[in-house]
């Protein structure tokens, strides 16, 4: 792959374009240099590759879990949020939520959920592409992935705020339960329920991807910076 990009650059027709492309893609690693210090150049590649893999894998795992505890639910009620769907006791929680006039969980983050698989695939691909870019543009390509976990939590908290503060005033318990903001992480209380929200394996993978990107970019800088300055 690397060889092919180099060839493409060499045979690019227009010199100006070729110069821009070279500025974005950055220097290639001479063969003798790669042989001399393979770890130096493979490390950023492996870390960024691992980050991309983590993100793709996270698609298949739950990101967030909400557990509701109440006396009449000895096993608790559980909702697992994946990037594109919610599983668990969604129907039961919807049934309970109607008492306080909360909208059905299915109505939350519809756009995000419909785009999430493609979006995460794309940002994972960008990270994978960053492997071949030996300039600061690698960092720009990795940025969406690095920020994804934070974006996820922020979006979720906004939805929780929206749901908790837009209760149907005609609901049976609208006098008893005032609008509230369920916490995206940690413990909350509503009625006889105590809720515990926590992130799950998918989120941990996304977070691992962020870490791998951060460390990978450092090694990336260490490996390719000297080549660019040469």
């Amino acid at each position: 792959m690397k060889a092919r990009i180099r060839t493409a650059l060499q045979y690019a027709e227009r010199p100006a374009l070729r110069a821009t492309a070279r500025a974005v893609v950055g220097p290639r690693v001479p063969a003798h240099e790669l042989r001399r210090r393979p770890l130096r150049y493979w490390l950023p590649t492996l870390l960024l590759g691992a980050a991309a893999a983590c993100l793709v894998a996270s698609i298949f795992l739950p990101y967030w879990k909400l557990t509701l505890h109440a006396p009449q639910y000895p096993k608790g009620l559980h909702v697992h949020a994946y990037l594109d769907r919610m599983t668990g006791d969604v129907a039961e929680i919807d049934a309970l939520n109607h008492y306080i006039g909360m909208r059905r969980l299915d109505e939350a983050a519809r756009l995000e959920r419909s785009l999430s698989i493609i979006a995460v695939s794309v940002i994972a691909l960008l990270v994978a592409a960053a492997v071949f870019i030996h300039t600061r543009f690698a960092a720009y390509l990795s940025l969406p992935a690095a920020l994804f976990p934070a974006a996820f939590l922020v979006d979720l908290q906004l939805w929780l705020r929206h749901f908790g503060t837009h209760l149907d005033p005609r609901a049976p318990l609208s006098q008893a339960i005032k609008p509230f903001v369920p916490p995206v992480l940690g413990q909350g209380f509503v009625g006889q329920f105590s809720t515990v929200a926590r992130v799950e394996a998918g989120f941990h993978l996304a977070l691992a991807a962020t870490a791998a990107i951060a460390v990978g970019l450092y090694f990336h800088w260490r490996a390719y910076r000297p080549l660019a300055e040469r």
Partner: peptide, 16 residues
């Protein structure tokens, strides 16, 4: 960038 990412990671891990 690196520091922001690391902070995110460390902070996030602490929260989770």
């Amino acid at each position: 960038l690196a520091i922001v990412s690391l902070a995110l990671m460390v902070g996030g891990t602490a929260v989770t």
